[in-house]
């Protein structure tokens, strides 16, 4: 029976085009992509051919398999995957490829992983860095993974933060807590509002930036649930991460808030440390 699920193998200028396209996506979606370069240093590159067959079967639809100018090399682009996901992928590859099953044969393959998240990292640069790192790797049995560093910092993402709280003094404290949060790659732009209506009238919500909304459920004019409903009805609502603060400790309210699209829920009075931890976790989710 012929296996119909075979990925296409790209090369040449079409590959560069695809790489650039995927890299642009990376920046827009803030989801790291990994480039994997597999190298077979045995005499007639027998391992890599077997691996290539397996790869064609296990790759996901959005993954891209490509050839380089060297016949002993094969490359893979894994969108939405960082270093950990890629390492996992290699482990899976090793487990599903028959050629590694027999330990006596002592087959081995080198792999280098590089994370792509910066607009200035070109394909040829990336491949060069991979090869560079591979030259320092030692060969043992199985797939041996090394990591290449592109030398770039993650591009700084501007994250909008909206604080909606009617109590002026408490709001001030929350703003100061936010001002003291520093995360690499994230530039927090904080704005405070005393009411939901003011948030929408300010136009602050109308941009593509990821947006963290921290709000109290009871607000004078447009309350928390109204704001939540309106935010989630916007066309690009995924950009909003919502943390609801409430004085109501009833389960019914909590369930409803989660069902309407709250990402986290804090009951007042809450611990400021817990608040900071929640916020950091939510911000960490912005680059993955």
């Amino acid at each position: 029976m012929v296996n119909t699920k075979v990925s296409e193998v790209l090369d040449g200028s079409f590959l560069t085009y695809t790489f650039n396209l995927l890299r642009a996506n990376v920046l827009r979606e803030r989801k790291t992509m990994s480039l994997l370069l597999l190298q077979d240093n045995t005499e007639n590159a027998s391992v890599i051919q077997k691996v290539a067959v397996t790869l064609q079967q296990i790759l996901r639809e959005k993954d891209v398999l490509f050839k380089t100018e060297h016949t002993n090399e094969i490359g893979i682009l894994l969108p939405h995957s960082g270093r950990e996901e890629s390492t996992g992928f290699l482990r899976r590859l090793q487990d599903s490829c028959e050629c590694f099953l027999d330990p006596s044969q002592d087959r081995c393959l080198l792999a280098s992983i590089i994370e792509v998240f910066h607009p200035e990292l070109t394909l040829s640069n990336a491949l060069m860095m991979c090869r560079d790192s591979l030259s320092k790797a030692s060969e043992t049995s199985g797939i041996q993974a090394v990591y290449a560093d592109s030398g770039f910092e993650r591009p700084v993402t501007m994250v909008k933060v909206s604080l909606l709280e009617a109590d002026r003094l408490f709001r001030g404290f929350l703003v100061m807590a936010f001002e003291r949060i520093h995360l690499p790659g994230i530039d927090l732009q904080i704005r405070e509002f005393d009411d939901g209506l003011a948030l929408f009238q300010s136009g602050w919500v109308n941009s593509w930036h990821p947006h963290l909304v921290v709000m109290s459920d009871v607000l004078p004019k447009k309350n928390g649930l109204d704001v939540l409903h309106e935010l989630r009805a916007m066309p690009n609502e995924e950009k909003f991460t919502v943390l609801m603060m409430t004085r109501r400790n009833s389960e019914e309210d909590m369930i409803y808030a989660y069902e309407s699209g709250t990402d986290a829920y804090l009951v007042k009075p809450f611990n400021l440390r817990l608040f900071e931890a929640q916020v950091k976790r939510m911000l960490a989710g912005i680059w993955s």
């Binding site: 109590d167 003094l169 408490f170 404290f173 007042k268 009075p269 809450f270 611990n271 400021l272 440390r273």
Partner: peptide, 9 residues
């Protein structure tokens, strides 16, 4: 007052 009612620490 505002802090005691909103923050627990």
């Amino acid at each position: 007052r505002s802090l005691v009612h909103n923050i627990k620490s």
